[in-house]
Design a protein around this nucleic acid. Structure first.
Lengths: 211, 211, 211, 211
DNA sequence: GATGAATGAGGGTTCATTCAT
DNA sequence: AATGAATGAACCCTCATTCAT
């Protein structure tokens, strides 16, 4: 993952400034590629317009870097932290959910950006980007499904399909809780309640899918 | 639903042309409001720029109409067709899935557009549009959960949560099958296989959630 | 004056409708040629866009007609009513002032339109229009200065210059009273006071310029 | 007067270029706000469209700046040069006329622009602009009428009205000499003759209004 | 004659990108 | 490396003019 990022021109920029650029760009691109405006990025990052283009060449070049960087973040700070030894798939997916929530806290724009980028990709197909997404997605699935103890499932149930039901159910719950009018405070206040409710879903899934 | 659409200026446009405009606009706006370009719309619809603005005034006015129209389509050609008598929730959601697939066939851009519109709405909150979405969403949920025979579920399982698991699982499956590189032909070729696979998920859900 | 107007296509339009078109156009063109919009004219006149262009061909053609027509109005309802026998120039100009006020009442947009047209003419010189203005202006001066009894002026004063002082003073007063925030009601309420004040200026002029 | 102009973004533009923009804009806006076209301005000023909008944001912003700047010019290069000690009102107005002629020479579009702006203002009332005009106008009157030696007038003549007659007469003369077909050369050739003629009017006014 | 839907050139505005300093 | 003034293509929108009915 992420080959080429370490050798990118931007790496010669001092770290603090680079961080500011990446965060500003990720936040702005979460509006979608077209709606994002380079002026906002340089304003928020506190650098000049010329410098941005000195490092990234084009808006596209910047987008490409930010996208790869985001995928790499997901890999380094999420996928690589998954406990591969856990063979109880429901337990594992529950832990993955917690890791994802943690990462969302640390990088609020990360998943918004990636979600938008994924949709943008449908409109403007781009092999390279598609490959990045697919790679990240397949690694996630691979890790999630690695060493699943299929004997936990009731007899006669396809283990992969059952795992999908678990994944989609938790995703569905998360998506249903995101609201435009929710502030960061709201989120923190509701956090405990959400975890409680997720646990109830987990409990149903465990009761029904497991022996 | 949709009050006011019938009296819109556009209704005096001949039907064939109007259809072309609506389809072209829906397809273009699926890129997102900002990324959509009125030139592309008129080119695809085969009308002049002036005419588009004669009927809709502004890009915003066009967007507004297309959005309301899409919600109305969803209502007339999907929600209103749901069999309210069906008390077996899994069966009902299965039938809803089929209706949705049918509508996707007839209006390929419809759900893509609505999904993007929903995301755009998060960034540019607009009370009127939010109301439309909420109305459509709540009607859908209400219809889906009307007259559910909760006695079918295993004892000790919350019926609403169980219904959600069914809905999210089918949504998750659908989403996983949408690919940017999939043409309409691909879709038709795979259709039968998809239905088969969905049936298997339905079967698992029935086996595990029902008595 | 006005040759060609009687034979204009528009004369075959029924009088009532024609009046509405002329009034609407004069009012709209008082905004200036460029700022005037044919849509407003047809809306106010209650005719269709096509009909306007059927009769006048182009916006320019309409403007040209309206301008000539306005000059003719000035001739027929102002200049031709001047009492040529009056040899007391101050008295005559006073009466001309009253005639002008009357005409302003009957056609509120007339002088506004002409003033704007005169300014527009400076920007876009047009021989034909310039000729119309000049003709109207010279006729007005000629009539004003016809049969002036120069013996009324103090000795050693150039009669033409003295007459100009009278004219410019009264024009200056009128111009100083026109305000953007003055409604027709305001105007009528102030009318008497204005006439009184004008009389005082007249009195000064008479006292100083006349023997 | 003119507070805020010195801190305008445009002030960071190099002077030569700025002058070109201001002159080009003043000339173009003399056509009236709507009729003026930003393309003509940038063409004449020799800058790009983008730059104009970089500095002024909108056509309106440009107009606003040009208007304030014109008022300030009138103040700095005309009103502030008036000799307040002069108590002979006719002499003072004569000198003011000369100052105005000088300024017209230096900025040929200035008074045309202001005259048009004043008319535009009647149609599109704008408090801020109205205030600028009123301020400039009232300063002009105040300066003109400051320290008038009313004892010079014949007894029984209202001093203010007499002063107005002087002002309107000279304005009337100026206005009568402006012709659309007059080039700058014509103007310079006629200049001496005009001054001679104005002197004759001054002489009449002095002879008749003064003791 | 009369209508108003339809056209497209033209104008204001935005913004990615370049380049002299 | 760093800046930000400068550019111009592309976008939304207006409106005089045409034309089928």
């Amino acid at each position: 993952m992420g080959e080429g990022l370490e050798s990118h021109k931007i790496m010669s920029m001092e770290e603090d400034k680079r961080e500011r650029v990446i965060n500003a760009a990720m936040k702005e691109f979460a509006k979608g590629y077209k709606a994002a405006c380079t002026d906002s990025i340089v304003r928020e990052a506190g650098i000049s317009k010329g410098l941005l283009f000195h490092y990234f060449g084009t808006k596209d070049g910047l987008y490409s870097f930010i996208l790869k960087n985001a995928c790499e973040m997901v890999y380094n700070e999420y996928l690589s932290l998954i406990n591969l030894e856990q063979s109880d798939i429901i337990e594992k997916i529950w832990q993955m959910t917690l890791l994802k929530v943690d990462l969302s806290y640390k990088h609020p724009a990360l998943f918004d950006f990636l979600a938008k980028a994924y949709i943008d990709l449908q409109e403007n197909p781009n092999e390279e980007f598609a490959a990045y997404f697919e790679k990240t997605r397949s690694v996630a699935i691979e890790k999630a499904l690695a060493d699943v103890d299929t004997s936990l499932f009731k007899d006669g149930i396809d283990a992969k399909k059952a795992a999908n039901i678990v994944i989609w159910t938790l995703n569905g719950y998360s998506a249903s809780k995101i609201r435009s009018d929710m502030t960061m405070e709201d989120y923190q206040n509701e956090y405990e309640r959400y975890l409680e409710e997720i646990k109830e879903y987990i409990s149903i899934l465990r009761k029904t899918l497991y022996k």
